[in-house]
């Protein structure tokens, strides 16, 4: 039997925000490169202890290599910090680019519906 831990009490749950980002560049970047770059920028700016508070997760299935768009989940108190860290990314593999935030949402569904669904 697989043991699972109980969920956190509702009052103790971490409130999350979903930052939808887009890389403005002529090239397409793989998920691996993008995740590595985002993490290195966050770690460089805030360090390991600082970034541990952000509760960052980059869902792999929601990153689109063709459109260079994806989602970063973080704690709702630290949206500005994550935004600043991704704004300070200058290049991936020496290719210059611009990281742009398309929007910030409270649920993953609204992030998908508003920004990632082709209408």
């Amino acid at each position: 039997m697989v043991m699972s831990i109980n969920r956190l009490l509702p009052t103790m749950e971490i409130r999350e925000r979903y930052i939808v980002f887009k890389i403005i560049s002529d090239k397409n970047y793989s998920l691996e490169d993008t995740v590595k770059t985002i993490w290195s920028s966050i770690l460089q700016l805030f360090g390991e202890v600082g970034s541990s508070e952000f509760h960052i997760w980059i869902p792999a299935n929601l990153y689109n290599e063709n459109t260079n768009t994806g989602i970063i989940r973080c704690s709702h108190d630290y949206v500005q910090q994550v935004r600043a860290a991704i704004a300070l990314i200058r290049n991936i593999d020496h290719e210059p680019l611009i990281f742009k935030t398309l929007g910030v949402t409270g649920t993953m569904r609204s992030a998908k519906d508003k920004f990632l669904t082709v209408k």
Partner: peptide, 8 residues
């Protein structure tokens, strides 16, 4: 960078 990024 976009305005909100500079503000952040």
């Amino acid at each position: 960078r976009a305005g909100r990024e500079l503000a952040s």
